[in-house]
Design a protein around this nucleic acid. Structure first.
Lengths: 103, 103
DNA sequence: TTATGCTACTATAAAAAATATAGTAGTGAT
DNA sequence: ATCACTACTATATTTTTTATAGTAGCATAA
C-alpha cells in the first residue's frame, strides 16, 4: 500500500486489533493488569506487543513506578492525548447510532 | 469484554484490519476491484468478508448496477457517512503529528 | 522463613484470521 | 471463438491471536 495518504499512515497501527480500546482506556494512566481486566481477556502476549507498538509510535509512555510494590504505568503522550479527541467523536457517533433502536 | 461502553460496541468492527481504510476510500462509491487497488493488495477473501461485515453493520450498501457490463458498487449509508466525520478528525490528527519531523 | 499473593510479563502450542495464488462465472467486445 | 473485465470463491500457507502455564521480583502474613 502506498503511504501517500495520512489515514493510511495511521491505519497500520490504529487498525490493529485492540488498539482502539487500549487508547480509549488509557484516558487515564493504567497498569498492565488493569488493562488486561478492562479489555476483558486480551491475551498478555498480544497486549505486550500492542503496548510496545504504541510506545514505538509515540502514542504512549511506559513508566516504571518504584512504589512499595514496584509497578508499571502506561500513559498517553501528548500525541496520544490529542488522539483521544478523535475517540470522543467516535463515541458521539456511536451514541447517535447505537443508543436507540433502528435508524 | 463487557459491552457497556459505546466505544467497545463499535470497536469490534472498527478495530478490524482494513476497516479504517475501507471506510476512508468509500467517501465516494467504489467497485470491488477499485477497492482492491486502492487498498493496495488486500486479499479478495478478506475484502469480501469485511464488506459483508460492514454491510451487516449498516455502514455501507452493496448495489448491483445493471449498466453495460453489470457491476457492483459499494457506498456508505447515512450511518457510514456520519462516521466519515470521525475520520476527518483522524486525518487532522495525522497531519498534526506526521506531516512535519519530530514533535 | 516458608508460603502466599501481586505485578508484569514470557513460553509454547493451538486456533483463528489474513494472504498468495489460482480458478470460476457472467457479460461484452473483437 | 477468444480475450478481457468484473466480482468474486477455493485452497493451502503464513501470520496473528489465543489459551494456558510458567517465571521472576518484591511484599506481606503465618
Amino acid at each position: 500500500m502506498k503511504l501517500t495518504c495520512p489515514i493510511e499512515k495511521a491505519a497500520s497501527f490504529l487498525g490493529a486489533k485492540w488498539t482502539l480500546e487500549i487508547i480509549y482506556f488509557l484516558q487515564e494512566p493504567r497498569r498492565f493488569c488493569e488493562l488486561q481486566e478492562l479489555l476483558g481477556g486480551i491475551n498478555p502476549v498480544t497486549l505486550t506487543q500492542r503496548l510496545k507498538l504504541l510506545e514505538a509510535e509515540g502514542i504512549l509512555n511506559r513508566e516504571v513506578v518504584p512504589d512499595a510494590q514496584r509497578h508499571v504505568e502506561y500513559e498517553l503522550t501528548a500525541k496520544g492525548k490529542d488522539l483521544v479527541a478523535v475517540y470522543q467523536d467516535l463515541s458521539m457517533w456511536v451514541s447517535r447510532w447505537y443508543t436507540e433502536e433502528a435508524h
